[in-house]
C-alpha cells in the first residue's frame, strides 16, 4: 500500500494522473536521501492536492456513481467502527432469516445511545456474495423495521446508513414479499416516535435505499448518489441499451448527485468528503459523518415525539413538483 494516499489495485480512470504523481512521491520518499528532496516532495504533494481537488470538484454524474461504488469506500461497518463505541450487533428478523446485506445494532455515538442500521456490501469476494453486494432481501428490511421498533420502545434515536444499488431482484425476494417489506417500512418509519437520521454514504438506489431512509434528517455524503433507479437501469429502459455512453447520459439526466438532490429538496445536507473521496481517507470521512450525525441528534433530542412525527410527515408531504391547472 502506498503511503502517499490511496492507490490500491482499483484505480478509477480519472484518478490515474493523481496516482502517477503519487508513485513519484512514494519513490522519492523511499529514497534513502529523501531529506534532500524536501522541496521537490512539497511541490509534488501540492500538485497532487490541487489535482485531486480539481478532479473531485468537477466530477460528472457518472464519475460520481463510480466513486460511490469504489471498492475501498468505507461501508456501514467501517463507519460504525470509526465513529461508534460499544457496538452490539443484533441479528435476524425473527421470522425467516438474518440478511447480511443490512446490519443492525446498538451503539454509542458521541453522547448518544442509538440504533444503527445500514446496508453492508461486504469486502472480500465471499463476503460480497453473501451480502449480495448490498442488495437486501425482504428479510433485511423486516430486520431493520424490527430493530427500529425496538429503538422506539426504548426511546433510542435511529441512525441509518444507506449504501445499496437497490433491493435484491430475485425469485426468493419476490416470494417473500420484497415490495411489501419496503412498503411497510415506508409507512412505519413515517410514524416512529423517535428521531431518525439517515445518510446516503455510497449508493442510494431507489426503493431499496428509501426503505431505510424515511427520516427526520437526510443527508448524502458528497460523492454519494441517490435516485429512483440506477443509471444502468435507466439507460437500459430509456436508451434501450446500457453502455458507457448511455450510462453517462442517464446518470446526468437523473439528477442523482448530492448537490442536485439538495437543490431538489430531497435531502437536507451534504456531508463533505476528504479531498479525493472517502476511499482516500476513510477516517476523515467517518469523522465528518459523525460530526453531522451528532449535530442532528442533538437538535432532534429537543423535539417531543408528536411534533417530531408531524414534522417528518410535513417534510415528505411537501416533496414533489406539480403544476396546478
Amino acid at each position: 500500500m502506498a503511503k502517499a494516499g490511496y492507490s490500491g489495485s482499483y484505480v478509477l480512470d480519472f484518478e490515474q494522473p493523481v496516482v502517477e504523481i503519487e508513485k513519484q512521491i512514494d519513490a522519492l520518499e523511499a529514497n534513502p536521501s529523501a531529506p534532500r528532496f524536501a522541496e521537490e516532495l512539497a511541490t509534488l504533494r501540492s500538485t497532487r492536492d490541487t489535482l485531486l481537488t480539481k478532479t473531485y470538484g468537477g466530477l460528472t454524474a457518472w464519475q460520481t456513481v463510480r466513486v460511490a461504488r469504489h471498492p475501498a469506500r468505507p461501508q456501514t461497518l467501517d463507519h460504525v467502527d470509526a465513529m461508534c463505541r460499544d457496538f452490539v450487533q443484533l441479528h435476524g428478523d425473527r421470522q425467516c432469516a438474518d440478511d447480511p446485506a443490512i446490519v443492525t445494532g446498538l451503539a454509542r455515538i458521541g453522547p448518544f445511545k442509538v440504533m444503527v442500521i445500514g446496508h453492508q456490501k461486504g469486502r472480500s469476494t465471499a463476503e460480497r456474495i453473501r451480502c449480495r453486494f448490498g442488495c437486501a432481501n425482504p428479510d433485511g428490511y423486516r430486520k431493520a423495521l424490527l430493530k427500529m421498533q425496538f429503538a422506539e420502545k426504548f426511546k433510542l434515536p435511529i441512525v441509518t446508513l444507506v449504501d445499496t444499488p437497490g433491493a435484491y431482484p430475485g425469485i426468493e425476494s419476490e416470494e417473500r414479499g420484497q415490495a411489501e417489506a419496503i412498503a411497510v417500512n415506508l409507512r412505519e418509519m413515517s410514524r416512529l416516535r423517535t428521531p431518525i437520521v439517515s445518510v446516503v454514504i455510497g449508493e442510494g438506489g431507489s426503493g431499496g435505499a428509501l426503505g431505510i431512509a424515511v427520516a427526520d434528517r437526510v443527508a448524502m455524503m458528497e460523492h454519494a448518489w441517490y435516485s429512483v433507479i440506477s443509471p444502468e437501469g435507466c439507460a437500459a429502459i430509456l436508451w434501450k441499451e446500457a453502455n458507457e455512453k448511455t450510462n453517462t447520459l442517464a446518470a446526468q439526466a437523473l439528477s442523482l448527485t448530492a448537490r442536485q438532490n439538495l437543490s431538489n429538496g430531497i435531502i437536507d445536507a451534504i456531508v463533505p468528503e476528504p479531498a479525493g473521496g472517502a476511499h482516500r481517507d476513510p477516517r476523515a470521512a467517518s469523522d465528518a459523518l459523525q460530526g453531522w450525525i451528532i449535530d442532528q441528534l442533538r437538535d432532534l433530542s429537543r423535539v417531543d415525539p408528536d411534533t417530531l412525527v408531524n414534522l417528518r410527515f410535513e417534510k415528505f408531504r411537501r416533496m414533489g413538483s406539480v403544476r396546478s391547472g
Partner: peptide
C-alpha cells in the same frame, strides 16, 4: 416510479405511504 422525475418520484413512495 417515473424515471423522468427521479428522486422526486422516489419520494412519492414515502409521501403516499406516510399519508
Amino acid at each position: 416510479a417515473r424515471m423522468q422525475e427521479s428522486g422526486l418520484s422516489l419520494m412519492q413512495m414515502a409521501k403516499t405511504s406516510a399519508a
